[in-house]
Amino acid sequence: MIRSRKSALTALTTFAAAGAALVLAAPDAAAYVSGVSVASGTSIGGGYGTNCSYTVTVNGSPNEYVWLYDSASATFNPQQLSLGSGGSATSSWTPTSTGQHFVQAWSYNGSQWAQVSVGTGINLGSACLVTG
């Protein structure tokens, strides 16, 4: 009887060790956002201006759902997006206030942001005149 308990304990220990090894060796399946950037577009005077639209690019895990936020006031079109099979997507960002903005791409598994300084913009249609 003692011998069978020892065999059962050895089998249980071996099974637990094998299970732990599988968990540790498994690839990281967590989805994530790896980066966010804001293209400067066609600004006259440099930088970014209010009431002018710029392209935000988000990179991360393929098919990850991402929400976009701005620490100041701005609009996004669209504000929620999927990174698709290539792990990248774009949105249009239009700041509506001057100053420092943190454009954040957020998912359930983390976020990234880009810091952008916004001046007063005059939207000329094909370009943005930025002052201040």
Results as ranks from 00 to 15, higher is better:
102 F>T: 15
13 T>C: 03
14 T>D: 00
38 V>P: 03
83 L>C: 01
109 N>E: 07
75 T>E: 04
73 S>E: 06
20 A>I: 02
109 N>V: 10
17 A>R: 00
11 A>N: 03
97 S>M: 12
88 S>E: 14
68 L>W: 07
48 Y>N: 10
3 R>N: 14
16 A>D: 01
113 W>F: 15
49 G>H: 08
66 V>R: 02
80 Q>R: 15
110 G>I: 06
83 L>M: 08
39 A>F: 12
60 G>V: 11
121 G>Y: 01
63 N>H: 08
27 P>S: 01
69 Y>D: 10
65 Y>S: 14
38 V>C: 03
75 T>A: 05
46 G>W: 14
7 S>P: 11
59 N>R: 07
98 T>G: 04
38 V>S: 01
110 G>T: 03
67 W>D: 15
112 Q>T: 09
77 N>K: 14
83 L>G: 02
25 A>W: 00
58 V>I: 05
86 G>A: 11
6 K>R: 13
59 N>G: 10
111 S>K: 07
103 V>R: 02
99 G>D: 05
84 G>N: 03
18 A>C: 02
132 G>V: 13
50 T>W: 02
83 L>I: 13
16 A>K: 03
22 L>V: 07
101 H>C: 08
106 W>R: 14
49 G>P: 05
33 V>M: 02
26 A>V: 03
47 G>V: 15
46 G>R: 07
124 L>T: 09
35 G>T: 13
108 Y>R: 09
115 Q>T: 15
72 A>K: 04
73 S>G: 04
4 S>E: 14
90 T>D: 04
99 G>K: 05
58 V>M: 01
132 G>T: 10
110 G>W: 01
62 P>F: 05
131 T>R: 06
82 S>Y: 10
59 N>K: 11
37 S>A: 12
29 A>R: 05
40 S>M: 15
126 S>M: 11
71 S>W: 06
37 S>P: 13
75 T>L: 11
69 Y>P: 09
70 D>Y: 06
118 V>R: 01
19 G>F: 00
25 A>S: 01
7 S>T: 06
32 Y>K: 05
4 S>Y: 12
48 Y>A: 09
17 A>M: 01
120 T>G: 11
74 A>W: 09
114 A>S: 11
132 G>M: 13
17 A>N: 00
77 N>G: 13
59 N>D: 10
47 G>C: 12
17 A>F: 01
116 V>I: 12
